[in-house]
């Protein structure tokens, strides 16, 4: 049995997120070192401010400034920070109810005293990031905060020590969108059947698999006959020659695809290899693009790098008759 292949797969994109008015105000506020909440119809203040009341479903938008100080409502000690998390030294994840808010915000707490210095009820304040752009990460983290009289601070409007700047939620040059880069790393394995197929390509052989039930030959094999729902395993060498069943002429270079280094125009064809019961896909070369036709007989041109053929070229044989490949179209 062939050993399965494995290779890294990185899924990464900088997503561009538009915010809408409430989220725009909140994130712009963070840039300006102001924390905003949103008031619900029944007078609760939600921080972070959401666009829709989770209880009544009503759209809400009345912004209210709250204090940059608050109380930990629950916490968890993260001794091994992971990629992308707010701090790269051990910290506590915390839900913090800011003074003036009725709900809690998730963030990190930098607690140099370690886990034994943190408890539910710990008083904390925002530590602002030096560079702020209008993002949740403008709060670098929270830090412990020794307040002389915590009870007074529960209501920031009563004149406690917490500083409110009197923001109405309107700012110059508001942030309307964020870029949210996201990267996930995977180790991809194509499984048994495809591993065997790819290994045979390295020997410049095309090896499909036959369904034990319907006897059709699948190239590339996918481990299952998709119409019978049973495993394929009998290996069958096919090709290397085949017939172009249909094609298109590609005139544009699509962004984010792997064809960037191929000069346009080029022909992208469906090719039924001799002995296979369905067509695979490949590029046609060695012939002007406007002379490619259905029925053209072709053979693979292997790449120096190994793996899949770089492209297919005409064999010089007479074209296949339509009747011979129309079922493979």
């Amino acid at each position: 049995m062939t050993e399965v292949l494995k290779a890294p797969l990185v899924v990464e994109f900088p997503f561009t997120r538009s915010l809408g008015p409430v989220q725009s105000a909140f994130l712009t506020g963070l840039r300006e070192r102001v924390v905003l909440g949103v008031r619900t119809g029944d007078g609760r203040v939600l921080v972070p401010p959401v666009e829709y009341d989770p209880v009544t479903s009503e759209e809400i938008g009345e912004l209210v400034e709250v204090a940059p100080t608050g109380t930990v409502t629950t916490w968890a000690w993260n001794h091994e920070p992971r990629r992308g998390q707010p701090l790269d030294t051990p910290f506590a994840w915390v839900l913090v109810r800011l003074d003036g808010a009725d709900t809690a915000l998730l963030h990190a707490l930098d607690a140099p005293g370690g886990p034994d210095s943190v408890r539910t009820g710990t008083r904390v304040r925002v530590r602002w990031a030096e560079d702020r752009s209008g993002a949740i990460t403008d709060i670098a983290c929270f830090e412990p905060y020794e307040s002389p009289n915590p009870h007074e601070l529960r209501d920031p409007y009563s004149g406690g020590a917490a500083a409110l700047v009197g923001s109405d939620g309107r700012f110059e040059d508001p942030v309307t969108g964020i870029v949210a880069p996201a990267r996930l790393d995977y180790t991809y394995s194509p499984g048994r059947a495809q591993s065997a197929y790819i290994r045979s390509l390295a020997d410049r052989r095309v090896v499909g698999e036959r369904c034990p039930s319907c006897r059709k030959v699948y190239v590339p094999p996918r481990g299952a006959c998709p119409t019978c729902g049973v495993a394929t395993s009998e290996q069958v060498e096919v090709g290397p020659r085949g017939t172009v069943t249909t094609y298109c002429i590609v005139n544009i270079k699509a962004t984010h695809t792997a064809n960037l280094d191929i000069e346009v125009p080029y022909v992208y064809a469906h090719i039924a290899l001799d002995g296979a019961d369905l067509a695979l896909h490949g590029r046609i070369g060695g012939i002007p693009y406007d002379q490619v036709r259905m029925g053209l007989r072709v053979e693979p041109v292997w790449s120096e790098a190994g793996g899949h053929p770089d492209h297919y070229r005409p064999t010089g044989e007479p074209d296949a008759d339509y009747e011979t490949y129309k079922e493979l179209l």
């Binding site: 890294p8 194509p190 495809q194 249909t246 590609v250 699509a254 792997a258 064809n259 992208y268």
Partner: peptide, 23 residues
């Protein structure tokens, strides 16, 4: 068209997938 290892890259984009069937 995430860069799935070992697979032949999608050569032609979504339109290229459907154009041969139109032909």
């Amino acid at each position: 068209s995430l860069p799935i290892p070992f697979q032949q890259p999608l050569l032609a984009g979504a339109g290229g997938f459907f154009a041969p069937h139109v032909r």
